[in-house]
Structure formats: structure tokens, C-alpha cells
Design a protein around this nucleic acid. Sequence first.
DNA 1: CATCCACCGGAAATGTTGGGAC
DNA 2: GTCCCAACATTTCCGGTGGATG
Length: 342
Amino acid sequence: MPEPPLKDPTPLQTNYIPQNIEYREQEIEALRDVFSNESVSQNLFIHGPQGTGKTHVTHLTLQEIDNKCYVDCSKHDTQYKALKQVLQQLTGEKIGDGYHTSDLQRKLVEKTGVLDTVVILDEIDFLLLNDGDDLLYFLTRMETRGQTGLVLISSNHEDLKNKIEERTYSSLQPRRIGFEPYTAEEAFQILLKRAQKALTDQSLQKAALTYITATTQNITAGLYWLKHAAETTNSVITESHTQDVQEQAFEKYAGHLLSHFSEHHRLLYQAVQELDVENNSINTGDIYTRYEELCKTYNENTLSKRRLSDFLKHLELLDLIEAEYHYGGQEGKTRDVKLASL
DNA sequence: CATCCACCGGAAATGTTGGGAC
DNA sequence: GTCCCAACATTTCCGGTGGATG
């Protein structure tokens, strides 16, 4: 009687951080370099596609540093919300709304005091859609006796310089570290290590894993795929089984990316998905019409076009869609949208 | 060279919420 | 409580875009 393949799901979860991260020696070295001997020597800008280990490498390398805080800016996308997050982590106190931003800024200056502090701002692009520039300017100019080191992480832009104002960039002066996508072989080895811990012996066919890592080198997506494949079979994970569950697995991955966004983000994404099946090029107006229909069927109130235009940008930053912008021309000023997939 | 496409995206307006001072 | 203020989500308003077309 064959047993189910999954014995411990933990190593297949995306928040599981292995003790050593492979194929990232140079990047780890570069980070250690900046944070050596207990003092912060420079700000950092880390960029690279999704699922290339940016966040994991940062967490692992800065494990030893006490006075640090980590903010996921896709959840905390304004100066106020990010500052609140930073303060809560540094002090352990709950902070409510209703203060002025300058109050939070003053509190932060007090709390950092003489200590060196590291602030990690992940998914920085979401912050830059709003008043992120002001926050970065404040943090780089903040007058405290200790050093403040910033680590900015982006999945979407290789260059920070043209995303922020010159005065901000010039006081930031970050060192840039780029993460290249893994090769299929590297992705294979990484997922194999995790699979060996999570799955029972002989339960994963080599061809199955080869298929996954040839399709996507995004480790996060690969983990969702592998985990879903393991959960949906009672015997061995075969290549054809991984192919069968490919779409469902991507659906799970997309659900994970959208989990802390609004219901309207999900409806909007569903609208794009549905239209993508029918057409090969979609523009914004059609998407909005389909979104309105979906709102009706799910009994949700519809948000305005302007608002949804911003949400569409969020989906683009998450790499769930690809958009080509036309600023005028025969078709008018619009976006051509395509669904992204594994 | 005027017109048109179709909506981008900035800015101001609106309504809600919570903190602080009285 | 009441008043004022700021942050925030969202709506409303609208000027602007640039290549094709006539």
C-alpha cells in the first residue's frame, strides 16, 4: 500500500527559511560586507525577479542584527503605515491611527537614539506608488546619534534612481545588489532539498521536478506547485500529475499573492483571467465592464474606474499581468493587458 | 493640420475614523 | 462629550496624450 507523499509540509512553505541558501554566495557576501562589524556602512538597494531569494537572503544575513525591522510595503504602502510598522517592531508597543506623520517621525528619532538601526523595506514599489519618496527622504536625513541603514527590496525595477527624486537618491546613495533568476538546474536542486525533507522516500519522480523547474525558476511558485502536487495524490508524484495540476497550482500561487489585497483586487484579476481566455489582447475598458458584471454576480458594490486603474497597477507589480501602455495613438490612451502564467 | 480615439493619472473633494486638548 | 486635525479610501473632475485618418 503506497503512502501519501507529504510527511511534513513545513519545508515546502514559502516562509520556511533553510539554514543555508545555495547559489547566492556572492549576494550574501555583498550583504555581509555592508553590515560587517556591527555598524551600518551603507544603504542597500536589492533587486531581482520574484522568487529569486531576495527576501530570504536578507533575513538570513541580517539574523544577527538585533535592532532591525522588516516592513512588507505591499501591505504597508504609505509613509504613515510603514512608520507605524517600524515603530511597533522597534518598541513592541501598539500604535494607533490618528497621530500626525510628524509625530511618528519624532517618536522614531527618540526610539532609535544611539543605537544603530536597520530598516528593511520589502516590495518598495508599492510604497513608491504613494508617498514613499517622503519616507525615504526622512529616513535618510533623520538626525540620530546612531546610524540608520536602509535595505530596499524591489521585484520590478533595476534602477531606483529614476523612481525617486534626485534629492532623495543623493542622500540615499545605495549600493546595488542584483539577483539573477536561477537556472533550471539550480531551481531543481533547491526544490529537491526541500522535497527531501517534506516528502516520503521515493514519492517524487525526477521527471516531475524537472518539468516544474523547466517551466518556472520562481522558487515561490515552484514550492506552491510541488506542495499542491503532493497534496493531490495518494501515491507518487509523477510528471503527468504535475502537468495535470499546473493550472490549479498557479491559481494557489496567485491566491497567495493576492491574499492580503482587497476582494476587488481578486475580482479584477478574475475579470482579466476570464477575458484572457477569450481574447489575446485586452484593454482597460473591457476589463472594467467585466469587473462590474462580476461585482453584480457576487453582490459586491463596484468601485470607480479611477480606483480600479490603481488596482490594475498592483496586479502588474505582482507580475500577475503584463501591461503595455499606450499614451495616445490610434487606439487612444490605454493599456494592453495580458495575463501572466507559469 | 484638425480631429478623434479611450482612458491615463494628477488633483481636489468627500466621508470616515481615531487621537489629543479642552 | 465636543471640537479640531490628519490619514486614508474612494469618488469626482478633467486636462492631456500622439498616431492614424481624412
